[in-house]
Amino acid sequence: MNIINEYVNQVFKTVPLTEETNQLRLDILANMEDKYDELIGNGASEHEAIGVVIAEFGNIDELLSEMGIEKESAETLENHPTMEEGAIDFFVEAKAMIGLRVGLGILSILLGVGLMLSFLSAGSAIQANRVIGIILLLVCLVIGIALLIIEGMRADELKPYHQPFVLLADLRDEVEHQKKAYKKSLALSIVLGVSFCILSLTPLLVGALTNLLSLLTGLGLMLVLIGVGVMFFTYSGNVFNAYGVILSNGKDPEHFEEEVKAEARRKKIDYIIEEIYWPIIVVIYFASSFIFGGSIWAWSWIIFVLGGALEGTIKSLFDTWE
């Protein structure tokens, strides 16, 4: 069965991907699988069945010319992967895991510092406490940094998702829907994260104002609470960001080349503005201020305000040129 799937995919590889051709591929594949199942059911061997099914496939060129499809853009499409539902789900899950582990890494580091602080304050007179505190700090640091490094390396695997890829319209709708649905979770996560960060002040204040906690233990607890809060941000932020990445890099196959070109142009404009436009303004600012000197410093900074306004104008000019 896999051979048939492979065969059809291979034949369709040179066919520009559209809703229509994708449906066609699925229909033909379903027919061939039905035919295969029936042949097997009638006692044919796997080899015979595959042979018959593939022999009865026909010639794809006949079909393409009838559909008025040319293979011209096949090359660009072959260079850009198509992301199907499984691939999209994988990316969102991977980003969620990254968010979680990065959050855990940060939490671990903060926990280490927090533990060390509380051990130090628990009895700085006792030598053992100091040693235990420092050992705990080191262990937590190692775990935290290891988590961050591993996640940094895994992010490399997700590179294909950060380049343009083909995303079919109905899958795009689905992702947009999911993104919208996730907004509520994101808002809740942010509220929780912020709450933890604000709450984290409590142990510090308790430590500073009462005798219930030492100041250092209060500080340590504050760090841990901040770590928990940060986890909410990194987790939900990464998931939400994943949807954004998919929607901005996933292109409609019918306008694939145009969209990729338009994006390349936009990036070029951004580059010009960042690398040339703003440095020139900084140079003008310093040069003119130094040359004219004195009181001109009091208002020469206005050039930045003007520069900002002009940047918008330049960008919109480029946009209308397109």
Binding site: L24, D27, I28, N31, M32, E56, F57, G58, N59, I60, E62, L63, E66, M67
Partner: peptide, 14 residues
Amino acid sequence: YLIKETTMYSAFTR
């Protein structure tokens, strides 16, 4: 007579 897949789908398209 056997109709091939691509022949059939050409006919559908037409």
